[in-house]
Simulated scan of single mutants.
Amino acid sequence: MTDQKPWFLSKTIWASLCTVILAAASFAGIPTGGLEGGALADGILQILTALSGLVALWGRVTASRVIG
């Protein structure tokens, strides 16, 4: 891993940012519009948060260049 790339091209950075945003939205109780039931909305946010965390992990494992 000697090549460098800008931070905004990193899968790990973007997935980590999505994880933080989704977790903050869940914590803040952001309204979910037309979705019926709070449990459904909470479940969707939790699934998306878990998926973005997995993408961040995948991005780090498959990285071939360092962030410069």
Rank of each mutant, 00 (worst) to 15 (best):
V55A: 11
A24V: 07
K5A: 14
A15G: 03
A63W: 02
A63D: 05
G37M: 05
A41G: 07
T62W: 09
A56D: 00
G38V: 06
I44E: 00
S52Q: 00
L17I: 07
A23N: 06
A28D: 13
A50P: 00
G37R: 05
I30C: 10
S16M: 07
V61Y: 09
I44D: 00
V66Q: 15
A41K: 02
T2L: 07
S64A: 15
A25N: 09
T49H: 08
D3S: 13
W14D: 00
A25W: 05
D3T: 07
F8I: 08
V20M: 10
T62C: 12
L17F: 11
A15Q: 00
I21H: 02
G68S: 09
F8C: 11
A39D: 12
L40V: 15
T12C: 08
T2I: 06
D42K: 15
W14K: 02
I47M: 15
I30D: 08
R60A: 15
R60K: 14
G37P: 01
Q4S: 15
E36N: 12
A56C: 05
E36P: 09
V20W: 04
L40H: 09
G68F: 04
K11A: 11
L17R: 09
L22Q: 01
A25P: 03
I47W: 10
M1V: 14
G33L: 01
I21C: 09
A23V: 07
F8W: 11
D42Q: 13
I30P: 02
T19D: 05
W58H: 14
D3H: 06
F8M: 10
P6W: 04
V20P: 02
W14P: 00
A15I: 01
S64N: 14
C18H: 02
C18M: 05
G37Y: 04
T32V: 13
W14Q: 02
I67R: 10
G34P: 05
S64C: 09
A15F: 00
G68E: 08
I44M: 06
I67Q: 13
A23K: 03
A28I: 12
L51H: 03
L9V: 07
A15H: 00
A63V: 04
W58V: 14
A24C: 14
L35I: 12
S10A: 10
A50L: 12
G59F: 02
A56T: 01
A15T: 01
P31D: 05
D3K: 12
R65V: 08
I21Q: 04
L45V: 02
W14A: 01
L51A: 11
G33N: 04
G53P: 01
T49V: 12
G33E: 02
I44N: 00
I44G: 01
L57H: 07
L22V: 03
T19I: 03
G68M: 04
G43T: 02
L22Y: 01
E36F: 10
G29N: 06
A41P: 00
L57V: 14
W14H: 05
A24T: 12
S10M: 06
Q4I: 07
V55H: 06
V61A: 12
L22R: 00
T19Q: 06
L48W: 01
Q4K: 14
M1W: 08
I30K: 10
S64Q: 14
G59W: 01
G59Q: 05
A41C: 08
A39F: 08
I13M: 10
